[in-house]
Design a protein around this nucleic acid. Structure first.
Lengths: 221, 221
DNA sequence: CTGTCATTCAATAATTCGATTGAATGATTT
DNA sequence: AAATCATTCAATCGAATTATTGAATGACAG
């Protein structure tokens, strides 16, 4: 049957892509790679996994065309193939949020104050920043901040934020953001800020989505 | 670590969705369900697989929230959860087409006359149909045609088309469509029509995408 | 050239997934 | 109620995936 063979072969390829996304830790790797180019052992450190394990997962992602690898001296740096990978991830997330009761349960259980944490849209933030009305804080670790951040944002890693009050104007609203839609850091940051009396909200999604939306990004040299 | 557990749990859910797409035959099931609501053994017949096997795959898809099941008398009818499933599928396809060399190889090998088969866009077809300039044929099996088709299209299943020339005006261009972007039937149909001297082209994608684009669909009662 | 470091490869064991078979369930018909 | 049909469940076996370990490779520093 020459009529069904090519389709079969194509569908096997599509399945390779989907299968590569079918592992929680590979999804987390993608989230980290969305922040910028990263080496294997940096990723291993961030995820708290053995290097060999991370290396294997990265190769699965590479075979699926989701990431590219490039040697630079001793290190091998991985990066996302392009923005379509992020939108694929977003599609998966969207279907899961819509149709899996378990997702709803987790969100309600851990993010129960979520209604009070309605995010600020990117457009709204861009406007209000132009008018100088808000303080924007990036709660990701310093190395991720360095790879790119919202222009004018100040870097207050979540760990620091929870230790001592940040040195920011208490009369201006604070907008916090982190890695992406379900990165818990911005949720925790808003909770910590509010407990200290700040008026705080989250930015929708994280830096990768801000960047993908074509908004300006500041990079530290 | 209360900070990483909810994310982990969410990512496991996202992985369930991705994993469900990670099998060629489940992708094919989705393609068929995109045509409309279908029973288990109808799908089993169409794919040429054992019923129990198809039932299991469908349950995997159900657990991932991609399809819904509904009992109707003796039959259990499955349908796609909603249009976001189709766009998820499209995202997977897009990444695979962009980044997997093997996809390119398959396409070149089997669809080598593809350049000569540049598809007609949905908008173009809608316009030209309004002006009555083209003949539109739906080369899917009759049962799929019955569940919904482009208004005014005539049903000439591929098998029939290859047996004997269709009874259509040889002076008008013929536009053929089938199940979706990589459904080979419309490719074969165009090849067959051209061999018989017709001027023929493919519609981009298939009926599900036409429908998802909000264009009108005719249903047989 | 040797040592060190980052990464990958290779081998193993544990787990999960997939296809197949036959029995069990649920609904309809006689 | 018994028979029939569509579907699911349960159990099996073989195949594929995963985590882990240790050895091999490639690049750089001394």
């Amino acid at each position: 049957m020459s009529i069904r063979k090519p389709k079969q072969a194509l569908y096997e390829q599509f399945a390779i892509v989907a299968k590569a996304l079918g592992h929680p830790q590979r999804l987390e790797l993608i989230e980290h790679l969305a922040q910028g180019t990263r080496s294997v052992d940096l990723l291993a450190t961030k995820l708290g996994l053995p290097i060999a394990n991370v290396s294997q997962h990265l190769q699965t992602l590479r075979r699926a065309g989701l990431v590219h690898a490039e040697r630079e001296g001793k290190f091998v740096n991985y990066r996302l193939a392009d923005n379509t990978v992020l939108s694929l991830f977003a599609s998966v997330r969207s279907v899961a949020e819509r149709h899996l009761a378990e997702v709803d349960r987790i969100v309600r259980g851990y993010f129960d104050a979520r209604d009070a944490m309605e995010p600020v849209t990117r457009e709204e933030l861009a406007t209000r920043m132009r008018d100088g009305l808000v303080t924007v804080i990036d709660v990701r670790p310093a190395d991720e901040f360095a790879l790119g951040h919202v222009p004018g944002a100040i870097n207050v890693p979540l760990a620091c934020l929870q230790e001592r009050p940040p040195e920011i104007d208490p009369d201006r609203e604070v907008i916090a953001y982190c890695r992406g839609p379900w990165c818990v850091m911005s949720f925790e940051a808003v909770a910590a800020l509010r407990k200290r009396g700040f008026q705080a909200r989250r930015l929708e999604d994280g830096l990768p989505e801000w960047k993908a939306a074509g908004l300006p990004v500041e990079v530290m040299l």
